[in-house]
């Protein structure tokens, strides 16, 4: 079943056409991967999907609702969360605080904040959940460390943890394992698989096909702002990867 669909997305940066009619379809519960050389428009595409960039043309549908050009803060309430290409930890805040930002507490309204009973129950629930997630990600021992002191890989895990706080329907990840040691990279994708079992959909942009290939259900290849190949399931993905066009792009790199 389809959860996300884009139709003919076009995005210009000045005169440069970064996205040239991109249509993709993401199935619920799949791990969908977008690959392509630098500058092919992958990050631009997911920035448009997650509302960080506005599309010049085209539509984005999530669960058949039109979400084109909505604000990121609004998409969160539809169940879409994302991680960034360069980790964006809240550096001066602890790992635990970083996770707690993943969920909205009524105590974030100043008037509620003054009254304990308005927000303490939710806070208790969130703290429990945060520690469960930290345990799942094997980060429990780091809960009181400042996020700015973590390694790059740990930061990425914290970002995934934060995304999990929300019970999202779909997690969009921009290069989740770029700059991460292979061991930790496999860990991250094993977590992705476990979460997939729980019904979460993933849309991922990633360069390092060697590591990622075994975890994915659906593959798109982008080049010059267009989708040039697509395959779903092991057989089709293999076919895509032996497609001379695709090989040329990748070897060309």
């Amino acid at each position: 079943m389809e959860i996300l669909r884009t139709e003919n997305i076009v995005k210009y940066f000045g005169d440069f056409k970064a996205l040239d009619g991109v249509s993709i379809s993401v199935n619920k519960g799949d791990v969908t991967l977008i690959i392509g050389p630098n500058g092919s428009g992958k990050s631009t595409l997911i920035n448009v999907i997650t509302g960080f960039l506005k599309a010049d043309e085209g539509k984005v549908y999530f669960e058949n609702k039109d979400i084109t050009n909505k604000e990121p803060s609004e998409l969160y309430h539809h169940g879409i969360v994302r991680t960034f290409q360069t980790p964006q930890p809240l550096k001066e805040m602890t790992v635990l605080e970083n996770l707690l930002i993943g969920e909205i507490n009524p105590g974030e309204r100043p008037l509620n904040a003054l009254f304990y009973k308005k927000w303490i129950p939710k806070e208790e629930e969130m703290v429990e959940k945060a520690f469960k997630i930290l345990e799942f990600l094997k980060l429990s021992h780091l809960y009181d460390r400042k996020a700015g002191e973590l390694s790059g890989g740990q930061m990425k895990l914290v970002e995934i943890g934060r995304a999990l706080m929300t019970n999202p329907k779909m997690i969009v990840m921009d290069e989740p394992i770029a700059g991460v040691a292979p061991g930790l990279a496999h860990d991250i994708f094993n977590h992705v698989l476990e979460l997939k079992e729980k019904g979460i959909t993933f849309l991922i942009v990633e360069h390092r096909l060697d590591i990622v290939l075994r975890y994915i259900d659906h593959l798109y290849v982008m080049f010059n702002g267009q989708i040039i190949a697509e395959g779903r399931g092991e057989e089709e993905i293999k076919k895509v990867l032996s497609d001379p066009k695709v090989v040329e792009i990748y070897i060309g790199e």
Partner: peptide, 9 residues
């Protein structure tokens, strides 16, 4: 950006 991505205005 993070705060925006997590639903806050």
């Amino acid at each position: 950006d993070t705060v925006k991505a997590f639903g806050r205005d």
